[in-house]
């Protein structure tokens, strides 16, 4: 009998703790499939960050380090500088990366550290119970914005791809989503490219993946995927922002 679908080897057998309908599981699987397909599992170190995905070190079947809140890019820098032959990726949420870890991600990107960042944006602090994140949508109700995010008071959501794309060094930046089959296929393609660039030793690679949080959004899993499409995608456009090929061209022109 021919096997047409199986658990990627790069995922452990540990059952995941994510809420029903959360797309973390899908994104984990995409990363794991890519590690399998590129045959990277045995030379990869993943970095779990603080947030819902803190326990991802139990799920990725490769060497893992658990970082302090926001510092995964610094930890990844340490590993990659110590052992450049390893494949290193961080898996970070939006509170971790875009709030407390803003300095670390911007500087790692700007140094062009040759590791891959998988950035999962679901607009809330999930693990601590749904507080406002830097990525929370205007008007979105969270446990710390009971009247909805007031942009006059605390500004508009942070768009990380756009921020990082404004830097000259980082090579590969793309935003994808995990809410529909079509988006998921594209997401995998982007994640695979990101790792390929790292394998080639070319550049810093960054994939932002829009994700759902049905629990904290107070929506059913299906409604959550729709909410993502209707509210997040218009503000967070799904597209490639940068490839190393374009950057190299652009770099020449700029000089």
């Amino acid at each position: 009998m021919k096997t047409i679908f199986k658990r990627p080897e790069s995922l452990t057998l540990t059952p995941m703790h994510y809420c029903p309908g959360c797309t973390h599981g899908i994104i984990h699987r995409l990363v794991a499939e890519v590690l399998d397909e590129l045959d990277l599992r045995e030379r990869t170190v993943g970095i779990a960050s603080v947030g819902c995905s803190v326990l991802s070190y139990n799920y990725f079947n490769c060497d893992m380090q658990e970082a302090s809140h926001g510092r995964a890019p610094a930890v990844a820098t340490g590993i990659k500088r110590a052992r450049p032959d390893l494949i290193v990726f961080t898996y970070q949420g939006d509170g971790d990366l875009a709030s407390i870890g803003m300095a670390e991600i911007v500087h790692a990107a700007n140094r062009g550290e040759k590791f891959t960042v998988v950035f999962v944006n679901n607009t809330v602090y999930g693990m601590t119970g749904g507080q406002m994140a830097p990525t929370t949508m205007p008007g979105q109700v969270t446990t710390t914005t009971p009247r909805g995010r007031d942009v006059d008071d605390i500004g508009y959501p942070v768009r990380m791809c756009e921020i990082l794309a404004s830097l000259r060094t980082p090579g590969f930046i793309e935003r994808v989503a995990a809410n529909t089959p079509q988006h998921i296929i594209r997401a995998k393609r982007a994640i695979k490219k990101a790792f390929q660039y790292q394998v080639e030793g070319r550049c810093f690679s960054f994939v932002e993946c829009l994700s759902t949080c049905p629990t904290n959004w107070g929506l059913s899993p299906y409604k959550a995927t729709q909410w993502l499409e209707e509210n997040m995608v218009p503000y967070y456009p799904l597209k490639n922002f940068k490839t190393p090929e374009e950057s190299e061209e652009g770099g020449k022109n700029a000089d």
Binding site: V75, A76, G78, K80, A82
Partner: peptide, 26 residues
């Protein structure tokens, strides 16, 4: 060897964590 001037001491300490975790003298 590897010399890196980091963005902050907070980052330095976490780079140490990463490099030490990868088994080198950091």
């Amino acid at each position: 060897g590897s010399f890196l001037q980091a963005e902050s001491e907070v980052a330095v300490s976490n780079m140490l964590y990463g490099a030490a975790g990868a088994g080198v003298r950091a």
